[in-house]
Amino acid sequence: MVDEALKLRREYRVPFWEAVLLIARRDSIEVDAVLEAANHHQPMEAFKNIDLVANSVTPETLDGLITSLESNQVLTFSSQITLIDGSTIHIPMLDFRIRPNPENLNLATMIVDHAGLSGHIFDSGNSYHFYGTSTVDGAAGLANFLGKFSLFAPFVDQRWIAHQLIEGACALRISRGKNFAEPPRQVRYVATPGSNRTALGS
């Protein structure tokens, strides 16, 4: 079942867990156990968290943290920023589900622009990541942002969005990873929201 799901993901970009659930239902393979596995969420608090003061977040600081990682570790960046008054804001972040190529980079740009945002698009090695240059307020603002972008599935990773909603914060990898020899790299800056807006599917 897992092999078939991986093949579907590799050949057709079918989300892995969607493929597993459909195959399990089709073949009557311990659906209850599969649902239990699909329901798993690994909270951020289970990992080592490093709080940084805003003015200490520099390329040198991040390079130092990445250099100190062990071979089986990755460094992720959290969307959550805690202000002096104790309130929280979030950096808008997205994980796309489209392979890196010129056509799909333009598609990611269209989606970001269509939503009226400015920010940086990164090639993750498998797809694209997005970091906005504005912020949203608190849990409600983040939920509203992620909810709107879930409407762009399957171009954005809907399961990733679900995990971020459960967590109440977003996280994206900024270092090398188990399956990635290089960290994500910036490939485009999207500015002037709405200037190139095109209705998807029209």
Rank of each mutant, 00 (worst) to 15 (best):
M1R: 07
V2Y: 08
D3A: 14
E4I: 11
A5R: 02
A5F: 02
L6H: 08
K7G: 05
K7V: 10
K7H: 12
L8V: 00
L8G: 01
R10M: 10
Y12D: 14
R13P: 05
V14P: 02
V14G: 06
F16N: 04
E18L: 05
V20C: 07
V20H: 05
L21C: 11
L21N: 07
I23L: 15
R26G: 06
R26Y: 08
R26L: 10
E30Y: 06
V31E: 15
V31L: 15
A33N: 11
L35G: 05
A37M: 14
N39D: 15
N39C: 10
H40W: 14
H41S: 04
H41K: 13
Q42C: 05
N49F: 03
L52R: 10
S56F: 08
S56G: 08
T58E: 09
T58M: 10
P59T: 02
P59D: 08
P59G: 04
L62F: 12
I66K: 15
S71I: 14
N72H: 14
N72C: 07
Q73H: 10
L75T: 11
T76L: 13
T76W: 09
T76S: 07
S78P: 01
I81A: 06
T82A: 06
S87W: 07
I89E: 12
I91W: 04
P92Y: 11
D95C: 08
I98Y: 01
I98W: 00
I98N: 01
R99N: 09
P100T: 01
N101I: 04
N104P: 07
N104D: 07
L107I: 15
T109A: 13
M110L: 13
I111K: 00
I111E: 00
V112L: 02
H114Y: 14
A115K: 12
L117K: 06
H120I: 13
I121C: 01
D123L: 04
S127M: 00
S127H: 03
Y128K: 02
Y131L: 15
Y131N: 10
S134V: 14
V136L: 08
V136D: 04
A139S: 13
G141L: 01
G141I: 00
F145Y: 11
K148F: 08
F149R: 02
F149S: 06
S150E: 15
S150D: 05
Q158Y: 10
Q158A: 14
I161S: 01
I161V: 09
I166P: 03
G168E: 00
G168M: 00
G168Q: 02
A169M: 09
A171P: 00
R173T: 00
S175I: 01
S175R: 09
S175P: 03
R176K: 14
K178V: 13
Q186Y: 04
V187W: 08
V187C: 06
R188C: 06
Y189P: 03
A191K: 13
A191I: 06
A191L: 08
T192C: 08
T192G: 09
P193W: 00
G194M: 04
S195G: 14
N196M: 14
R197Q: 08
R197C: 02
T198Q: 14
S202M: 11
